[in-house]
């Protein structure tokens, strides 16, 4: 590391005492100058991020504690706004509109079903993508003619915008579309609950499995071939080699990939918004927030804050208990283990 180069400039042969002092001073100066450099290089990006993320989020939290203007649903009197305490949060979490339960079909009555839908989509898509992605990665890791063509092909679904993916699969799953013809079925895919959900899941799996596969492939490629050869010599079966070598060694990369995908799936919006507009039990939390925006900012702000907290909680659980440490893998080795 070049960072170690600076203290070496200290005089070569001073008395033991001055040597110690000078070294400390030298290190100190190097550290301060690096720190100052780092400060000036990083602050613009951090300030910009603070402006585009922290400011809106703080704003949203403040809004969440304000009443929405509009007609009171019970008294039909115009409400001017003002502090609301935790009313907006209670509105969503307890599905309370005013003093009564929200009428079925209103946005307020959909919070828990949206949470359920979001988590259902997340669990099913991430599990499918992990299994399929692992299989794809194992194939792509082998040496065969046309391997680079395959690696290029898997990038195609990844590169297609999600909005286009949604329209493409909407067409494939149209009533007269190719899916029904191919399977000889007559399903209104986007018109009823379970087919709609599966249509969305299949589209999502098609679009994002390649990303998963490439991350897992990168993890597979750092496993040295000698390890497998040694295991083969020792008589380990293919299954044993997979569970005893591949899985443990690929686990760090796999956990980071799963973490990325889970957090991405929890904010799923584009596919259901375009394919079903959130109808037929496909309303995710993101769709609910967007639907709410035009009915009342402050209530929407409360819901988006809740969504943010849910995603934050899931990320925390992943990093804390499942060892998906994306930060550690992005931190240079020298600083690893200094904190945490």
């Amino acid at each position: 590391m070049s960072t170690l180069a600076q203290p070496k400039r200290a005089p070569e042969t001073p008395s033991p005492k001055t040597k110690k002092v000078q070294k400390e001073v030298g290190q100190d100066r190097a550290a301060t100058s690096q720190g100052r450099w780092a400060f000036w290089l990083i602050s613009p990006a951090l300030v910009l991020l603070a402006v585009v993320i922290v400011y809106p989020v703080v704003n949203a939290i403040i809004m969440a504690f304000q009443k929405d203007q509009g007609l009171d649903p019970v008294t039909k009197v115009f409400v001017q706004g003002g502090p609301a305490g935790f009313d907006n949060f209670v509105h969503w979490l307890a599905q309370q509109c005013g003093s009564a339960a929200c009428a079925p079909g209103t946005l307020g009555a959909q919070f828990w079903s949206a949470v359920g839908t979001t988590f259902f989509f997340t669990v099913v898509t991430v599990v499918l993508e992990t299994v399929l992605g692992f299989w794809m990665a194992v194939i792509m890791a082998r040496t065969f003619r046309g391997r680079s063509a395959l690696r290029a092909a898997v990038l195609v679904p990844w590169a297609i915008p999600t909005a286009v993916t949604a329209k493409l699969w909407f067409f494939i799953f149209a009533f007269d579309g190719i899916a029904n013809k191919l399977f000889g079925t007559a399903i209104l895919w986007t018109g009823s609950e379970w087919p709609a959900r599966w249509a969305i899941i299949i589209s999502d799996v098609w679009k994002t499995t390649p990303f998963m596969a490439l991350l897992i492939l990168a993890g597979l490629q750092i496993i040295p071939a000698e390890v497998y050869e040694a295991a083969k010599v020792d008589g380990a079966s293919a299954w044993q080699r997979f569970t005893q070598i591949t899985l443990p060694l690929v686990k760090p990369a796999l956990m980071v990939a799963v973490l990325f995908r889970v957090l991405d799936a929890l904010r799923m919006y584009d596919l259901p918004a375009i394919m079903t507009q959130g109808s037929n039990g496909t309303t995710t939390l993101s769709i609910l927030v967007v639907d709410q925006i035009r009915q009342g900012f402050n209530s929407a702000a409360a819901l988006s804050t809740i969504t943010f907290l849910i995603i934050f909680l899931v990320a925390f659980i992943f990093v804390r208990f499942l060892g998906a440490n994306a930060v550690a893998s992005a931190t240079p080795k020298t600083t690893k283990g200094q904190e945490k």
């Binding site: 990006a45 993320i53 704003n59 991405d264 993101s286 925006i293 702000a301 988006s304 995603i311 930060v327």
Partner: peptide, 17 residues
């Protein structure tokens, strides 16, 4: 950690404010 957290930030949390 802040940068990574920011990259996983849900877009809906920004859209409303």
């Amino acid at each position: 950690g802040f940068v990574l957290g920011a990259s996983m930030f849900p877009g809906v949390a920004l859209v409303t404010p």
